[in-house]
Structure formats: C-alpha cells, structure tokens
Amino acid sequence: MKKYDRNKMRQLFLGSKERRGILPTIALYVILIGLAFVFLYPLLYMIVNAFFSPDDLTNPSVTWIPTKLYFGNFVQAYYTLDFFRSFGMSVFLSVVPSLLQLISCSLVGFGLARFEFPLKKLWLVLVVATFMVPTLVLRIPRYLMYYYYGMLDTVLPTILPAAFGQGLRSTIFILIFFAFFSSYPQSFDEAASLDGANRFTIYRKVALPAASGAIVLCLLFSFVWYWNETSDLSLFAPNIFTLPQQLRMFSTKFSDLYGSEGAMAGGESVRTLNSSIELAGTMLSILPTVILYLVLQKQFVESVERSGITGE
C-alpha cells in the first residue's frame, strides 16, 4: 500500500511514459520564461521607457513603472519620423519587391525543377553560390552602375534585383520553390499538356496552386526582410525614407525639428529626454511589422514547417 503511494507520487512529480510530471513541467516553464525574458528584454525596456515623462526619467525611484501614461514622446517621435509618409514608403518598398521576388523566384524554381536542359547543374550551383557572395563586395560596383544609369535616389535599385531573381536572399526562395516543384509527379504536367495547356499555363494553373506553402513563406519573409533593409538603401537612395531609415537618422531629424528647444534646455535633461523619445520612435517604427506578425504568427511559423526544408 505504502509502496504503491510512493510510486504514484513519483509518477506525479517526475512523470511517466505517458505524461510529463510536475517537476519537469515546472522546469520547462521556468527555462522558457527565463529565455523569453532575455529575448524580449530590450522590447520590454523599450515599451516601458517610451511612456516615461521627462519627470519620470529624472526621478531615480521610477525604474519600471511610469507614474502616469505619458504620450508626449510618441507625439514628438511621430513628427520626427514623418510617420505616414515613411510608413507609405516602407509599405511600397516591401510589398512591390516581395511580389516581384515571388514571381521571379517561382519562375526560376519551376524552370530548374521541371525541365532538363544543358548546363542545368551549373546554374543550380551558381544559384547557391550567389548566396555566399557578401553583399558588401557587390555594393560599390552596383552603386556605380545605378549612378551611371541615373537610378540613384529612386526606388529602382530595390525593385530591379527583385524582379530578376537577385533580391534579398532570393536564393533561399528559389531553392524552396525548386524543392516544391520537384516534389509533385510529372504526370500532372503531362495530363495538363494533353488538355492543351502550354508550359506557362502549367506553371500558373498547376504548379503555383500546389505550392501555396512556398508562396506564403516567400511573401512573408521577403516582406519582413525588405522592410528591415537599410544598408543598401542608405547608399543607393539616401533621400528615400522608410521607417527604419528615419529611425537611423532619428537624432538628426529630431534636432532639425525641435532644434531651438534642444539648444535651450541643454545638459543632462536633453539627453535623457531624447532616450525616451528615441525609444518611442523605435516602437512606432517596428509597430507595423509587429502587428502584422501578431495577426499572421501562425502562417510565419508554419510556413517554415511546410517549406520542404526538412526534405520529406
């Protein structure tokens, strides 16, 4: 009787084959919460500090909880970021390249997966090899090329490479489409072509609908990566301001807008004042993608699971 109880307790706490016990469960949650805290600490810090009023910032007793909800930082950050215009530019420079990237990468993936042609191996190797070339090496000659064709400070340096399968990390998308299009049987194509479909129709009507997982992955990840791209943009189009670009120039823009006030206040208070406003600006600039992510979280995560990367 006693022994039986001990066994039962043991199972309850340490777990059995069928279910996890209480102790491992607690350990799991403690580790996960701890890790998630470290992952998200900068974001928590940002959210809290963005609501600090100037008084809270100078008050040493206020570290985590603001005394009142203060939205002044956001107002100033909103004007500094020129939010609506930058937001529109960000949307444009993320949606258009993502769609172009989707079209070009799926076409190339289809071509490589469904046809036999000379030098195919070479092109496949080169597709992978382009991923390994650091963007840094290509930056200067590309700059000169855009300069020569008068494309600097336009949206073309962002859009054109995407249209020709050389956008941000397009290798990944080409390979994923390649894997998707290689995995369905050739007889589908043959049946469609007996029905009189040409090859482009097969791509559009048979292949693409079967690759919805790859399409979702390509669109979501391209969007996010294009949204966050700044290093090429700041060289090729320094006067095109997306939200991250505005954030990069935040302090300059801020002193342009609020210059006289900044000069008047002077000293310690200006710097601390700026840190809260800067964080409010950071928060505003990442808010659109965060909202998108909260809505589409499941698609983001599951698109990777269904990407065929595991090679089933």
């Binding site: 966050n228 700044t230 670009q245 950071t282 993608t289 998108l292």
Partner: peptide
C-alpha cells in the same frame, strides 16, 4: 519575434 523587427537601426 526578433526576426520581424531586426534591422540595423533597431
């Protein structure tokens, strides 16, 4: 989450 917001300025 960090993948979504990770840009140089952020």
């Amino acid at each position: 989450m960090p993948v979504i917001i990770m840009s140089g300025p952020t």
